[in-house]
Structures are given as C-alpha cells and as structure tokens.
C-alpha cells in the first residue's frame, strides 16, 4: 500500500505516533514532562431548589502557580455544569467533548439534557481510558427529575450525594460540609456554605488558591457567579510605574506596514455585459 504523501486532518481520537519515541526517551533517563494540573478544591451541594457548584481558581504546574484566575466550572448544557480537578487538559477536553455530544442530542430530541446522560457519557469515556485520562469531576444540574449532584472519579466510578467535594482540597472542604451541611438550605445559606468550603481549601491546601467561583442552578435558570469572592487581592502593587532610564539596545528594526482594510463606499460603474 502506498504511503499517503500529505497527512489529512484527523477525524478524531488519540494519536499514539510519538509514544515510541517518548518511551525511548524515558528509558534513556529523560523524565516525562509534568502537565498543568488544577490541584484543586471543587465542591457541590443540593439546596432547597437546586444545585450549587463551587471552585477555586488556581492552576499549577509543579510548584509554580501558572494561572491565578482560571475557570474550573465548565459548561455542559444550559441546565448542567461540571467542576473539574486533575490534569487541566483532560478536564477541559472531556467536558468539551461531552457538552458537544449533549448539544447534538438536544438537537436530535428537542428536549432538555438530563444529568444522568452527562454522567453516563463522562463515566464511559473515563472508564475506557482506565484512569489515564486524569479528570475528577463534580457534576451538578437540574432536569426533569429535579436536582442532581454526582462525583466522577478518573477511573470511571460515580457517586450520588447531597454534598460532594473533589481535588486536593477536598478534605478541607469536606470538613466544612460535614459539620455545617443540612437538608433544605436556602440559596443564600447554600452559597455561603459553598464559599466557606472553597475558602477552607484555598487557605489550607497549597494546591488551591486565589478566588471563589460559584454556579447556582435552579429549575429553568442558572447564575454563574465568576469571582464571587476575592479573598486574596494583590497586596504589593507599587504606586510608581517602572521606568527604564537606559533604553534597550536594539540591533535591527524592521517595520512591516499592514495592509489597510479597503472599504468600498457607493457603487462604481456597472460592469458591461
């Protein structure tokens, strides 16, 4: 069979082309790279008329904080959101894939997506990859059957709970929930408890930090409260701006003017036929 000269854009799925080379490098003592993680605190709880999800906003790469204000509450469907912890690329990719499958399913059926549909799609993807797709999720939403809250582990197991926490800060957050959660919280009480749980993750877990994001989902509506609390404002802002007395030494400058956008105003002569 002849080799195709030009590689066509792939149709989907993972490519394992570089695995042999990278495996060879690992064998020669070059350690595999570290990926961007969301060493995270994510939580969710059920309150009297829906679900509240919460997350911190720190992304880390090893010991470095590489994003101080990232978004960990992902959109799944208009009535379903999902918090992600673990390898950032995996949580992002898996939630994006499933949300597009849900969108297509809605176009097909003309009905609102259900939380169990999202749950099944997520768990079957994660189970298929046997824990190598490192995504730990808290899935929440309100559908025809009422509010639902689930946790999904990287290996594909799921739990159904009235309150849930995930990520490296899950222990700190769970201690808050275990001592203060009760059934039938109001929206205000629920948001307050979620913020408190996230803050305990932010302050007691090194992998979590910065701000609190909250998402409240009730029957027929949702509120995404991005940066609902900012418990860690920047403290070291200098009032004076930096000035550089000696200009940077430039060896060469090349200026390329960009083409002007030409707008055609009024009609010209009509083309002869």
């Amino acid at each position: 069979m002849s080799q195709v000269a030009v590689e066509a854009p792939p149709k989907g799925g993972f490519s394992f082309d570089l695995c042999r080379r990278n495996g060879m490098l690992s064998k020669k003592g070059v350690p595999p790279p570290s990926y961007r993680k969301t060493g995270t605190t994510i939580v969710g709880l059920i309150f009297q008329d829906g679900v509240i999800l919460g997350a911190d906003t720190r992304a880390t790469e090893g010991p470095i904080v590489c994003d101080k204000n990232c978004e960990k509450i992902h959109y799944m469907a208009p009535n379903i959101y999902c918090c992600g912890a673990g390898t950032a690329a995996d949580t992002e990719a898996v939630t994006d894939m499933v949300s597009s499958q849900l969108q297509l399913h809605r176009y097909h059926t003309g009905r609102e997506s259900r939380v169990v549909t999202a749950l099944t799609l997520l768990k079957s993807h994660l189970f298929k990859y046997q824990g190598h797709v490192q995504a730990a999720l808290v899935l929440g939403g309100v559908d025809a059957n009422g509010p639902h809250l689930h946790t999904i582990y990287p290996h594909g197991s799921t739990d159904t709970l009235p309150f849930a926490t995930m990520g490296s800060g899950s222990l700190a957050a769970m201690s808050v929930f275990e001592s203060k959660y009760r059934e039938g919280l109001t929206k205000e009480e629920g948001i307050k408890l979620v913020c408190e749980a996230i803050c305990s993750g932010i302050f007691n877990d090194l992998g979590s930090g910065s701000n609190v994001d909250v998402c409240v989902i009730t029957k027929g509506q949702k509120e995404y409260l991005r940066n609902h609390q900012l418990p860690n404002p920047r403290t070291y802002v200098s009032s004076k701006r930096f000035s550089f007395p000696k200009k940077t030494e430039v060896l060469l400058t090349r200026i390329t003017p960009l083409k002007e956008m030409v707008e055609v105003i009024g009609g010209g002569d009509i083309m002869e036929e």
């Binding site: 768990k123 079957s124 994660l126 189970f127 824990g131 582990y153 290996h155 594909g156 197991s157 799921t158």
Partner: peptide, 8 residues
Amino acid sequence: GSAADSQI
C-alpha cells in the same frame, strides 16, 4: 472491589 469496574 473497584467501584468503577463493578459499576460498569
């Protein structure tokens, strides 16, 4: 045993 395996 494994939660994921027994669920599937």
